[in-house]
Design a protein around this nucleic acid. Structure first.
Length: 470
DNA sequence: ATGTCC
């Protein structure tokens, strides 16, 4: 049995229009004609293209025929001249490119309001650190490529000294129970309720991602993702867990939905761009109407990816906490790449937070610093102007390329030594110097969150720097 | 962010 897939180039060559029919044809071929030769498939698709109406009632090819009978390219949707208002926090530290991107977003016809966090920098579509409330529409690139990218902090009942005395065993645990790198999968798979979800059966596109998702459950990926042992210090005696103020061993992880979320993001962004054509400078902000089939599908797939990301963190924490023999005292976790249905100013809106921490009144979150700077455990103040959001970290000061050129291995080593941090993996593009000063960023958002504690990394694991190794 | 191609 061959594994024939037809690619976009082939479809273009035989004259298929660049419309949703492209993807439909590829899916149909993959699902029903993978045993055909390429010549046979081309012959079949050419026949359908020549007379789509003749295939309209065909059980398999009817889908392609319907796509061909639709108008090929929808009209360009104009941005509004007048933007909806938005607040900026820490404007003097924000990359002007990020401001330009939010200026586009708040002119979308579906925009209701927006906000820009003090760690903002340029992304695709909505900037990282961008928040946008939309009316009954969701922007796949307003959520980001890594759907459900999130933080999870577990505070444990281990004496702080054990981390300092037995550092080697904590390092070994990280080596044994975490897995990093693009495409990384565990050989032995773990059962988990998230893998039983009906979305894996009901949404055709998502169904094809199941196998990879099952293999990648409990892995961490690459880039800025990490798992680290460190010391959490609770400073608020009125904390939610009635923990005595003081220091605890804690585990902090940062990662998302791996290949599953990336594929979902890519697929539905592409679909959105076909269905919602915006002026060129705003094209990545293409949105899906939540009443449309595509919009509803994305919403379900996005929520699945979010829950999958959460399950990944929980599996990592479960394994490491069990290995350490500790008991869990408290946990704080939050998505920072996601969209939610929320009520703002008395109206239900879709709030996109792309690199932004939910900060509703009393809502707890974690804002990481860098591998040598503290992260913060925060409680949201429910500020209206920020759409109840805060930064998701310190934010980049240098691009990855800039950081690799400006920072030396020697500098990184020295900084790690000064702060007593052990690093496994990690590239120069993730060095502390590549990030803004977290204290400056926190000072710009005192109206958004209150600090109830902090976290200092001690043993950090990240993907190896440079190209993936295995 | 991701094995960068719908």
């Amino acid at each position: 049995m061959s594994n024939l897939k037809i690619n976009g180039k082939t479809l273009l060559k035989i004259g298929y229009p660049q419309s949703p029919v492209f993807r439909i044809a590829m899916n149909v071929v993959e699902q029903h004609y993978s045993h055909y030769t390429e010549e046979e498939v081309i012959e079949l698709l050419t026949k359908v293209l020549a007379d789509p109406a003749a295939y309209a009632d065909n059980a398999i090819l009817g889908e392609i025929a319907a796509g061909l009978l639709q108008p090929a390219v929808p009209d360009v949707i104009a941005l509004r001249e007048t933007p909806v208002p938005y607040a900026i926090y820490g404007e003097s530290y924000i990359d002007p490119g990020a401001v330009r991107q939010l200026n586009n977003a708040v002119r979308l016809p579906v925009a209701v309001s927006g906000a820009l966090m003090p760690d903002a920098h340029q992304g695709y579509g909505l900037p990282i650190g961008g928040v946008l409330a939309a009316d009954n529409a969701v922007i796949p690139y307003g959520v980001g490529v890594d759907i459900g990218c999130r933080m999870c902090l577990s505070i444990l009942d281990l004496p702080v000294q054990s981390l300092l005395i037995n550092e080697t065993s904590y390092t070994q645990q990280l080596m044994k129970f975490t897995k990093f790198g693009a495409g990384a999968e565990w050989k032995k798979r773990e059962a988990d309720p998230v893998l039983e979800r009906s979305e894996f059966k009901d949404i055709r596109f998502v169904k094809n991602l199941f196998d990879k998702a099952a293999g990648q459950l409990g892995t961490s990926g690459s880039g800025n993702h990490f798992v680290e042992w460190g010391i959490a210090t609770i400073t608020d005696p009125g904390n939610e867990w009635q923990l005595p103020a003081g220091s605890y061993v804690a585990l902090l992880s940062h990662s998302g939905s791996r290949g599953l979320g990336a594929q979902i993001a890519g697929h539905y962004t592409q679909l959105a761009k076909e269905l919602c054509v915006l002026p060129d400078h705003a094209k990545h902000l293409a949105y899906l109407d939540l009443n449309s089939e595509a919009g509803q599908e994305y919403w379900l797939a996005m929520n699945l990816a979010g829950d999958y990301a959460s399950a990944c963190h929980h599996l990592i924490h479960k394994r490491l906490i069990e290995a350490s023999g500790a008991a869990l005292l408290a946990r704080v976790e939050n998505h920072h790449n996601f969209a939610w249905k929320e009520i703002h100013q008395g109206k239900e809106v879709i709030v996109h937070r792309k690199g932004a921490t939910p900060a509703g009144k009393g809502v707890l979150g974690v804002i990481p610093g860098s591998m040598t700077a503290p992260g913060f455990i925060v409680r949201g103040k429910g500020e209206t102007d920020s759409l109840q959001s805060a930064s998701h970290g310190a934010g980049r000061l240098m691009s990855r390329t800039q950081a690799k050129a400006a920072i030396t291995t020697q500098t990184l080593k020295q900084q790690l030594e000064e702060h007593g941090v052990t690093l496994i993996g990690g590239g120069l593009d993730e060095a502390p110097g590549a990030y803004k000063n977290i204290d400056t960023v926190m000072a710009a958002q005192t109206n958004l969150v209150e600090v109830i504690g902090q976290f200092l990394p001690k043993v950090v694991r990240m993907a190896d720097g440079g190209p993936p190794e295995d």
